[in-house]
Design a binder for these strands. Sequence first.
DNA 1: GCCGTTTTCGGCCCGACTGTTTTCAGTCG
Length: 561
Amino acid sequence: MARLLGETADLLEISAEDSFRIRSYRQAAAAIETYPNRISDWIRDGKDITAIPGVGKSIAAHLMEIEARGSFDRRDKLLEKYPPTVLEFLRIPGLGPKTIAALIQHFRISTLNELERLCTDQKLRDLPRMGAKLEEKILKGIAHYRQSAGRFLLNFATGIAEELAAYIGGDVTAAGSVRRGKETIGDVDLLVIGQDAAQVLARFVKHPKVHEVLAHGDNKASARVGLEGIQVDVRALPTESFGAALQYFTGSKEHSIVLRQRALRQGLTLNEYGLAKVDSGERVAGRTEAEIYETLGLAWIPPELRENQGEIDAAANGTLPQLIELADIRGDLHMHTTESDGRATLEEMAAANRALGYEYLCITDHSKALAMANGLDEKRAIAFAHRVRELDLGIHVFSGLECDILRNGDMDLANDALAELDFVIASIHSHMNLTGTEMTERLLAAIENPHVKAIGHPTGRILLHRESYAYEFETIARAAARRGVFLEINASPERLDLNQTLIRSAKSLGVRFVINTDAHHPRHLENMRFGVKMARRGWLMAGDVVNTLPLAKFRQAIGNT
DNA sequence: GCCGTTTTCGGCCCGACTGTTTTCAGTCG
């Protein structure tokens, strides 16, 4: 439903509809996407869906039509006018709705290939206000889109941000979605404070990895960096604007819009330079973020929450959660060794965990169904568990297993073998295309197994690569809460599974969590910070996460006494 | 198309950069 509304907003944009109507569609799409309950259920139960903020009479009618027949009239009419392939055009950087509408009208194109030919044939310049530079820009944009679909993993973007910040030197802060900890990143935003702007920007665009300068003005510069072509935006601002600039540059856009609306109601206007009175222009805040939020009557909001999903109300009411921090984690409970498909030995992994200052860890190699990973059968699993327990490296090591959930919901290893282990994570690695009903039954069966303590990477998504498998998440979360089975937040950067919406939903249903790296190499253990980011985005506190417990309490929590 | 501390009508966040054209529209964040 959210996707259909969002696509309709795109189509309305190309057809030059009223911009406020378009925004309404987008806001409704965002509201539905992050809504904790299933809209279909609400409609079937006859509840009033206009109670959802952003959903009014018209969009409610559209949603009921979608529920009834999979589309709605307004969308169908637009699709008669514009083939759905033109939606891709909006993903091309530098190409917006006005240009797209003009191109469709004049050249009757509908596919990226046709658009590309138009540019290589230098036909675009026949139209008013279009020239050679635009043709070139679109060609580069198409190439970039095809290569990466325009998004990058959080760990990659974080690495680029840290490398460039070190190169630029001085007071540089990563802002944008990197600071908010989004699992995929469109571009890297760097904020430079209190230095000579022109000099800083000039130095940035000369970085050896900068392949293409997209914009270079007095206050900001944008460039594509590295072979992957990730876009980096650098903005330079004076020291007295640091807080305002950091707020503005961190976003999200939706969060900032609501913040500025709130400012206006107080007779204030907010931009990247500061918070000022509308009538006199007098500056009242801007040096720190906290100062800005405070002036607006709000507690400072952690960046991970700035998605316009209730955080502003919570900040106004003083009900923001005390979010979990990396330092709260006392042990990593999901990792592999050379016993299955890990790259380091049991001893090396344990030593690496101790070096991170953890109190305990759990070794969870694969089970035999994952033959290509050299998974363990019952006999090997039990023998290995003995070796794990005998380890004496000054850190408590639990013997565990990442046990495959077979197609029918059975565990890969027999229950008497699982009973010998301290901590069993049940994961799906096969038959990922079952129907929603089959997959729900399969996971329910795993949760009912008396030896299963956690569900590993619960949705199975691989970012930018593979969707979650289909199942009824709420049903699974309810069962997990009832049975006391933990849901994993897998910190591996290509998974980051669960996402923030599912974390919040599961928490509201009473689920407790574990945050694990799924490390196959000692250096992967450092990915814990990304898992904690996701937990924070899901509004979790330390108390929601079991592996923040001290050893003795953790043992109680897993029934290991 | 949504919404209500002033509103059931009339508002709806704010600024930088580029290209093409001679004053600004389009795009982006």
